[in-house]
């Protein structure tokens, strides 16, 4: 059996995984092997992981929506309820806000306070418009007697779309805080990291909305 064994000497490669005998000099082959990554990478990476977990949270609501879409309890379905015009405006607001958020990133990269604030304000206003339209849609549905307690289908609809709305609202609070922080704190590293996370969050919400727009509104209104 010892014939089959392989010695594990210092720096040897008993598992034949490619790194040869070490000379004591660390091999910078990436993946953190050259030591800890810089703070900016760590913060962005960590926030990405958070966004992934958030996507999983949404996927649960998407799953329940697709399971419960036929559970109308004698109540109305997507075709009777959804107004694609409203949704189109909402989508436009959110996509434009992503664009202006991208403009903020450019301004922040140039440490231009005025343009950072202006583009952030535009992003915020578009976000507010989106939320306003969504609340308006929800209130309209409730007024029609198609509130979330009407049927399991409406339950899952309100929960899925509402969950996104809550995220956007939280994003708006964060956006307001960022707008206060840029003038108060200047473009220092921690603030820049935080803005990186914010922009990731805002764009991710857009992507989720594309999913909602497709699964809930488009497919809902084109299929019987």
């Amino acid at each position: 059996m010892s014939a089959a064994s392989t010695a594990l000497r210092a720096g040897s490669d008993p598992y034949h995984i490619g790194h040869g005998p070490s000379t004591g000099v660390p091999e910078y082959t990436g993946h953190g092997a050259g030591g800890p990554a810089p703070k900016r990478i760590v913060v962005g990476y960590g926030f990405w992981i958070f966004i992934l977990s958030d996507v999983i949270l949404f996927s649960c609501f998407f799953a329940t929506y697709t399971v419960l879409i036929e559970a109308r309890n004698g109540g109305p379905g997507p075709q009777q309820l959804f107004d694609l015009h409203n949704t189109a405006v909402e989508t436009a607001c959110l996509l434009l806000s992503s664009f202006s958020c991208g403009m903020t990133s450019l301004a922040v990269a140039r440490h231009n306070l005025l343009w950072s604030e202006i583009t952030l304000a535009i992003t915020g206003l578009l976000g507010l418009t989106f939320i306003g339209l969504e609340v308006h849609e929800f209130l309209g549905l409730v007024a029609q007697g198609a509130g979330p307690t009407r049927s399991a289908f409406l339950t899952s609809f309100f929960a899925l779309v509402g969950c996104h709305g809550v995220h956007v609202t939280a994003g708006l609070l964060w956006l307001g805080t960022m707008m206060a922080q840029f003038p108060a704190k200047g473009f220092k590293q921690t603030i820049l990291h935080r803005y990186l996370c914010f922009s990731l969050f805002w764009h991710a919400l857009d992507i989720i909305w594309i999913g909602i727009f497709t699964v809930v509104y488009l497919i809902g209104t084109i299929t019987p």
Binding site: H19, S22, P26, E27, T29, H31, G32, A33, G34, G35, P36, A37, I41, V42, Y45
Partner: peptide, 9 residues
């Protein structure tokens, strides 16, 4: 994934 001592593959 991001914070390891130098050389820790």
């Amino acid at each position: 994934l991001k914070l390891r001592a130098p050389g820790m593959h």
